[in-house]
Amino acid sequence: MFSFTKENLQRIEAEKKKYPTVESAVMPVLWIAQEQNGNWLSEAAIKATADVLDLSPAHVIGVASFYTMYNKQPVGKYHLQVCSNISCSLLGAKKLIHHLENKLAITHGETTQDGLYTFSEVECLGSCGTAPAMQINDDYHENLTIEKMDELLKGLEK
């Protein structure tokens, strides 16, 4: 079951006012739904989004499924998103990815059994000048090395 909290319903009303059509608020409302639902969009969260905007669930799924950042399955407490595009790869991103995969024993799109980490290989994060880079949930971590990555993970465990 999923229903928007009273506070989020108010936020949704505010989002609707920003656009000339209600349909246009679908992206911000999906963000709110994902946030309330523990960083992923369940079927119930999609349904609630559709209801609150008077859209069909099919339309909302059509939108949500297009974008990589709307998570269609549960993700760990820490979503490790490592860029593997050109500038990051020139500076060793692949090595970082192998290190991370070995360390956590998961590959792209998988979550550790304790539900702590999800690893995703992502496209260009716009950190080319501070490559290689990784995003942990919303935060950027740049100029990464294997040592720096290990330290970051250690900090998260605490």
Binding site: Y19, T21, E23, S24, A25, V26, M27, P28, L30, W31, V63, F66, Y67, T68, M69, Y70, V122, E123, C124
Partner: peptide
């Protein structure tokens, strides 16, 4: 706020994205 799609940098895709 976008949600992770390169194509949305294309101007007409961006408009459809904004329209929901």
């Amino acid at each position: 706020r976008g949600a992770g799609a390169y194509i949305c940098g294309e101007e007409s895709s961006l408009m459809n994205s904004l329209e929901g």
